[in-house]
């Protein structure tokens, strides 16, 4: 069991990374954001049969940021990792086509909960010793917004969530974060965990030659057992339902009546 003093998992914080920084990027396979999600008739879950899946948009931004760091000469290698069934290799290939160098697939039956994902990722971090880990701020399926923060806790690293700008200066990452009501800039000791917000960058398109090349880039497949992680359930999904349909209210006869209702009934002005 991990304690709250969780020490860095075998991480060599003093490793020289100025000239040899590896960036680890996580990618999650989710329902394409153009597709309207539909709850199954038996309400056990949403229906994902034959619907288009895609790279989580926030992860795509993470890949783009990593590739830009490499192009800028800051990063030396970009490694992508995804956790889930075999199909997630499609999203790893997409990330490779966008410019990542190699992929790691941790094969599990379905997509595990955030804490389990974070535990698996912590092991990958220990193995790979990246200078920077970039995740999406949230996956647009479960909308958890947890994995990056949990990974930071488990590895004992600094965290910069909801990043809209990332600069590497010396042994520090300057991360500008989109917080309620404005922007906040933090200096994070490297290695650091960063999660992406929408405005961090606009991801590029994968080109045909790069898609073909991506098929030949190395992709390692591992299991949780290989990493020595035992997965445990922390939550149980009891049911899924469509959101309650909004019902029409009343028609008011005049502006005066409207203002009166907003003040006294709805109490919103």
């Amino acid at each position: 069991m991990l304690t709250m003093q969780a020490a860095p998992v075998g991480l060599d914080i003093n490793a020289k990374r100025q000239n040899s920084m590896k960036v680890l990027v996580t990618v999650k396979r989710v329902l394409d954001y153009n597709v309207k999600v539909r709850v199954k008739a038996d309400r056990s879950d949403v229906d994902l049969a034959n619907v288009k899946m895609a790279l989580n948009p926030f992860c795509e931004i993470a890949v783009e940021e990593a590739v830009r760091l490499k192009e800028a000469g800051v990063a030396t290698e970009v490694v992508v990792v995804s956790i889930g069934p075999k199909a997630v290799q499609e999203q790893i290939r997409t990330a490779l086509a966008l410019g990542a160098d190699r992929g790691i697939h941790i094969e599990t039956e379905n997509s595990p909960e955030s804490l389990s994902v974070a535990k698996l990722l912590a092991k990958v971090v220990a193995d790979e010793q990246p200078g920077l880990v970039i995740l999406g701020k949230q996956a647009i399926d479960s909308d958890n917004n947890q994995t990056g923060q949990m990974l930071a806790a488990l590895t004992g690293l600094s965290q910069g969530t909801f990043a809209s700008e990332v600069k590497i200066e010396g042994d520090e990452a300057l991360v500008t974060r989109e917080v309620d009501g404005g922007l906040q800039t933090l200096g994070l000791k490297l290695p650091a965990i960063v999660t992406t917000d929408l405005r961090l960058n606009e991801p590029r398109y994968a080109s045909l030659p790069n898609i073909m090349k991506a098929k030949k880039k190395p992709l390692d497949v591992k299991t949780p057992a290989d990493l020595g992680v035992e997965l445990r359930a922390h939550t149980e999904l009891l049911s899924v339902e469509p959101p309650a349909e909004r019902k029409g209210g009343i028609k008011v006869g005049s502006v005066a009546e409207l203002v009166e209702k907003l003040k006294n009934e709805a109490k919103v002005i």
Binding site: S114, L115, M150, L151, L154, Q159, T161, H234, T235
Partner: peptide, 17 residues
Amino acid sequence: KNLLPRVAALLDVGQLS
């Protein structure tokens, strides 16, 4: 959102968002 997942992981529990 920035804080609680980090707390949960330190406690080795899940988080409900």
